Computed example of a mutant assay.
Amino acid sequence: MVTSSVTATTFLGGYLRFLRDAGWEVTLVCSEGPGVVELARASGVLYQPLRMEREPSPLKDARALLKATGLLRRLRPDVLVYATPKAALIGAVAGWLARVPRRNYELWGLRLETSAGFSRRIFASLERLTMRLSSQVIANSASLAQRVSALGLNGGRDVVVLGAGSSHGVDARRYSEDAEMPDLDPGVKALLQRSSAPIVGFVGRLHPDKGVDTLMEALRICAQRSISAQLLVVGAQEGVNVETDIDGPVDIPVHAAGFVQDVRPLLRAMDILVLPSRREGFPNVVLEAGAMKVPAIVSDATGCVDAVIDGVTGLVAPVGDAQALAVALETLLTDADRRESLGAAARAWGEEAFVPAVVWRQHSDCWAGEGGVR
């Protein structure tokens, strides 16, 4: 169970097929949306639509909870797996009401980390409830598990981390600079070719939590030091517009590509990926860039810090520190050999630690528990 069809179609394609082939009878539950019916059919699994709102909506959430409880009572699953905040809350409560024997919370991040005041207290209460009603909590990074314990959200119970983390690994055959993929959009290509400066990339939701303001300030500092760069931003606007919402001019070319279904051509065009996020669970885009031999600079925020080996596959800068991020950017923007060595190491690490079938098997075995339920 996940909240959005976009999450399902983006992350669960190979996963669902693997589970089916491993012997599970799988039903995917999420909101309706483009491609989700086709995904289920191609994966050989069942699909049950359940409309869930991403943002808090008490009346609609109560309606979704009632429908989820009825659905689970009809399906009578041995195991229920839920991820993403809204689906996790609804899944945990509905699964408990329907007496599902094993209820697994796949924790992919903590929204409360960038909240304050009353909102933070509400989010903390909902996380505690979700974890209390779950048979098992599986965090997708070590730092996330540590953060959960530090905040006292887990009620003293263990939070499991499988392998090196990540929810689904990275397909190093698909994410390869040599793989077949669409050509770079001609308009974006033309913009990038106007400058010979190295390309700094950002891929993700344009949301304040992603630290885009810190990135822009760091690039402004680099420009003041006469460090050449251009910025390629990939992602849908969710509260931040790089052209209107960033204070002051940035004296480098900035190209906004918007939301793109297949990011591989854009990753291949980048020299550096930067993710200065204020919170994550485990940012798989860093693994995807690394598989394309693009090194990453990430913040030391929860989740981000697990996605690189500092100084080996990428660099880490303190969260929200534009000066430190500018230093890291200068290090890689002025040293093509360093970028190449970090990128090669990033791909090797992905091939070693984040093979999708291995990650999927770890989760499948964990859900089944000792002796299994299949």
Rank of each mutant, 00 (worst) to 15 (best):
L126V: 14
V234F: 07
G204I: 09
V298T: 04
V327W: 14
R102I: 12
V93D: 03
S176V: 11
M216P: 01
G70M: 11
V160P: 08
C222N: 12
Y105L: 14
A257Y: 02
G350C: 15
V298R: 04
L126P: 06
T84G: 03
L66D: 02
S196W: 01
A236L: 13
G372R: 01
D247Q: 13
Y47K: 05
K210A: 01
A62D: 06
D335Y: 09
A179P: 11
T244H: 10
P198Y: 10
T9M: 07
V254M: 00
V359W: 03
T27N: 00
V29K: 05
V203F: 11
N140P: 03
M216R: 03
F202L: 05
G311Q: 02
R51K: 12
H207C: 06
L66S: 13
Q136W: 12
P58W: 11
A229E: 07
V36F: 08
Q261A: 15
P356G: 02
L267E: 05
L315P: 00
M52V: 11
L267Q: 10
D321M: 03
D171G: 06
R173H: 14
V373A: 10
V254L: 12
F123K: 08
E177I: 14
G165S: 09
A150M: 08
S299I: 09
M52D: 07
V159M: 06
L191H: 11
T84C: 09
K189F: 03
V240A: 00
E330Q: 14
A62S: 14
G14P: 00
P186E: 09
L231V: 02
D310K: 06
M131C: 05
A269T: 07
L110E: 06
L66Q: 10
A368R: 14
P253N: 02
A94E: 06
F259S: 12
L342N: 00
V26L: 04
W360D: 13
N104K: 13
N104W: 10
L59E: 10
Q261E: 15
V305E: 11
G156W: 05
R132M: 07
Q237C: 12
E55Q: 14
